[in-house]
Design a protein around this nucleic acid. Structure first.
Length: 526
RNA sequence: GGCCCCAUCGUCUAGUUAGGCCUAGGACACUGGAUUUUCAUUCCAGUAACGGGGGUUCAAAUCCCCCUGGGGUCACCA
């Protein structure tokens, strides 16, 4: 049997990270079994511009390197792959259901249906369809149809049986059809509804494995029944756990983004986004760029390997110890039988840890390539990168070392790229360690002389010179180090100090100290 | 509320199918220490879990039942 899996997103304008995990598992299963992974666009109910809304979704797949064998742009033998273009196919299937009496026209007013439903809930009773329209004679039905009476088409659930499946992750699951509502399969104008269109399409696209999030489990009996009525071979099912919000068990949802902002577990990612995106001149409040969406990770400068590794381990494990895995490793070892049943909360800390691991695997040159676009976007380097600028970036990347966890981190280190007059100081630290410190300014003046007099402007020589000075004055390094660091980089932490000074060069270093002294004096006077 | 799903450290998980190798393993986070004249890294160590109650058995995290708790879903959305 050829394994064919599919992911069927609606063109919404963004790609949800949880949806991405579902897509990944589908891709993994297809690839591992030498089958096909299909992208089908469920755009039946969308009025927005298709390309505009689909773009971000395809971008997410491309960014992560998850290719699709059939679907938009690549076509395939089972198209069209846009559900809206399959309407004639749905019409034929609908007619077959109606002709075989597997579905019926329901003229019951929607208010009436809703009232019955509410009454049932109030009485703590299961609701099933009234089926009053089934009492109509064929002529009466034709008459109402001719009159243009409002109606829907419902699937006639066989109430005397059960539906059971053997789910790849949940095992045996069974439903009593006597408890099921007759689902609406089409509106009065014949336009199909989700459960119906999906079933028709899955059958026609010869999908072998429906791998989807657990929240679809309750749709399964309806789809199985429709498949049977249509005479389709039944696909196999795998209902994987949904991705939960960090620190919780509830489904990660776009609707709760505002709430996540303040959640302790999620805060770090939002903060990183705020800092990096703002430095890039991008609106960090845009929900399409929140950590719930794949686009966030690309824009902030994550590696596909980091995101993929994290997503793979969400609800799946290779064994009892392997954590760092490339996509190839996951692909070779993936199995539906090792998918966990319980919902898994996204863990931002662990995600960052995977990301740092894979960034550490990158060569300096690869890191430079990754940083360049970010530096350009932030206006820290010109768009035209000549050899000299390339060299500067390379040196900065080497200095930043493992402080560069995501490419976006580089734009948070402007001290490597701006000149003395543009350097921004951390206000609080500047105040505390320089303005409010009794002799910080005097020491900086003396340090300036020491640095100026160094035989060579090299890290180790500067280091020795400053050490000598510290000993001579009977000070501790801690009494001048922080001030020197702030004066030259604007902040209290960062890359190794003396190599940084060497990187900046004598002229720039002294200029920064001069500016610090004058700013401090001005502040003290005021 | 009906239907369905789920339940091991704070988190992600291994172990459950074939009960003993489990004084429950790993990773992330956290805490302490070493290295680092900041921060980060690296290294070492530590804290930390089988939701509860009944069974079955020589033996239960593992099998059965009940309870509790958590979650999903109940549209002429997808």
């Amino acid at each position: 049997m050829t394994v064919r899996t599919r992911f069927a997103p609606s063109p919404t304008g963004y790609m949800h990270i949880g949806g991405m995990r579902t897509a990944l598992f589908n891709w993994l299963w297809a690839k591992q079994n030498g089958g096909q992974f299909i992208l089908r666009i469920d755009d039946t109910d969308v009025e927005r511009n298709r390309n505009e809304a689909l773009g971000p979704i395809l971008d997410a797949f491309r960014w992560l390197g998850l290719d699709w064998d059939e679907g938009p742009e690549v076509g395939g033998d089972y198209g069209p792959y846009y559900q809206s273009e399959r309407r004639s196919l749905h019409d034929v299937a609908l007619k077959r259901l109606l002709d075989s009496k597997a579905a019926y026209y329901d003229f019951e007013p929607p208010e009436e249906t809703r009232a019955q439903r509410e009454l049932a809930e109030k009485e703590k009773r299961n609701y099933i369809s009234s089926r009053v329209s089934l009492d109509l004679t064929a002529d009466e039905v034709q008459q109402k149809l001719a009159n243009g009476d409002a109606h829907v088409v419902r699937f006639l659930v066989p109430r005397d049986r059960t539906v059971s499946i053997t789910d790849h992750v949940r095992g045996h699951v069974e439903w009593n059809c006597g408890l099921m509502v007759d689902p609406v399969v089409a509106r009065a104008d014949g336009s199909p509804l989700y459960n119906f269109a999906t079933t028709v399409d899955d059958g026609q696209l010869k999908i072998s494995h429906v791998i989807r999030a657990e929240e679809h489990l309750s749709n399964t009996p309806v789809q199985v029944l429709i498949h049977e009525a249509l005479g389709n071979d039944l696909p196999e099912f795998a209902h994987i756990p949904f991705v939960a919000a960090p620190g919780g068990k509830k489904k990660l949802s776009k609707r709760d983004i505002a709430k996540y902002r303040n959640s302790p577990a999620f805060r770090k990612l939002f903060q990183l986004g705020d800092e990096v995106l703002t430095a890039l001149g991008i609106d960090a409040a845009d929900e399409a760029l929140s950590p719930v969406m794949v686009a966030y990770y690309r824009e902030v400068g994550f590696l596909p390997a980091g995101v993929l590794n994290s997503l793979s381990r969400l609800g799946w494990s290779l064994d009892d110890e392997t954590e760092n895995m490339s996509l190839d490793t996951v692909k070779d070892n993936f199995g539906l039988n090792r998918v966990v049943k319980a919902a898994a909360g996204l863990d931002p800390d662990k995600l960052m840890s995977f990301q740092a691991h894979w960034m550490g695997e990158r060569s300096i040159d690869e890191k430079v390539e990754g940083c360049l676009p970010f530096l350009k976007k932030a206006g820290l380097i010109p768009d035209e990168v000549d050899a000299e600028i390339h060299q500067v970036v390379k040196a900065a990347v080497e200095l930043s070392a493992d402080r560069l966890r995501v490419f976006g981190d580089i734009v948070l280190m402007p001290e490597f790229f701006v000149t003395a007059d543009q350097l921004a100081y951390s206000e609080k630290d500047f105040q505390k360690r320089i303005v409010a410190s009794a002799d910080a300014v005097n020491l900086l003046r003396e340090l300036r002389t020491v640095l100026d007099g160094a035989a060579e402007f090299k890290a180790d020589i500067l280091h020795d010179a400053v050490n000598d000075f510290v000993q001579q004055k009977e000070l501790k390094f801690g009494q001048i180090g922080p001030a020197l660091r702030i004066a030259t980089t604007g902040k209290t932490k960062g890359a190794d100090l003396f190599p940084t000074l060497e990187f900046l060069g004598k002229e720039e270093t002294l200029a920064r100290i001069d500016r610090t002294i004058s700013l401090a004096e001005a502040a003290q006077v005021a």
